[in-house]
Amino acid sequence: MLNLQPLTDDDRELIELARRTVDANTDGPDGVYTMGAAVRGADGRMYAGINLYHFTGGPCAELVALGRARAEGARELTTIVAVGNENRGIFGPCGRDRQILLDYHPTIRVIMPTPDGPGSALVTDLLPGAYRWTP
């Protein structure tokens, strides 16, 4: 069971950045796989990314946002969220993204959808007993 925390004003600001990013860069009504993500650094700065959907696979929006944060010098990240285009709302990260988040940012909070509305959980709660890779 997830230990979900209620959203903060900072969380809502992060969700809005992800939504604005996907809305500005969507593939349109036929782009049902377009996702936007945003991540917050420990210093409060936010970084956004968008996925590159392709039938052969491609980077998820969360990974693009993580890469952008890293490229701009952010090493400690506190919160991440992904949202779908066309007002599809908040999505939880896929298994690959969860493992990468755990390996690089084991204390990050992930904003997740629930039947009672969104909340945030530690990535360690999303992958209990996960393999711990140390680079």
Rank of each mutant, 00 (worst) to 15 (best):
L2E: 10
L4P: 06
P6Q: 07
L7H: 06
T8M: 07
T8Q: 08
D9W: 06
D9P: 03
D9V: 11
L14R: 00
L14T: 02
I15L: 13
E16P: 00
E16V: 00
L17P: 00
R19W: 04
D23C: 01
G28Y: 08
D30N: 10
V32M: 08
V32W: 06
V32F: 13
T34P: 02
A37V: 08
A38N: 10
V39D: 06
V39F: 07
R40W: 01
R45D: 12
R45Y: 03
R45C: 09
M46P: 00
M46K: 13
Y47D: 02
Y47A: 02
A48N: 00
G49S: 11
N51M: 03
L52N: 12
L52R: 09
Y53V: 01
Y53D: 01
F55L: 10
T56L: 11
P59F: 03
E62P: 02
L63S: 09
A65H: 11
R68V: 12
A69Q: 03
E72W: 10
G73T: 12
A74C: 12
T78W: 02
T78V: 12
T78H: 07
V81F: 03
A82Q: 15
A82L: 10
V83N: 05
G84Y: 04
N85M: 05
N85A: 15
E86N: 15
E86S: 14
N87V: 05
R88E: 10
F91H: 10
G92C: 03
R98Q: 15
I100G: 01
L102Y: 07
Y104E: 14
H105V: 09
T107R: 13
T107M: 09
T107S: 13
I108Q: 00
R109N: 13
P115Y: 06
G117P: 09
A121Y: 09
A121D: 13
A121C: 13
A121G: 13
T124D: 06
D125H: 15
L126S: 08
L127P: 03
G129E: 14
A130T: 12
R132F: 10
W133M: 13
W133T: 14
P135V: 12
P135M: 11
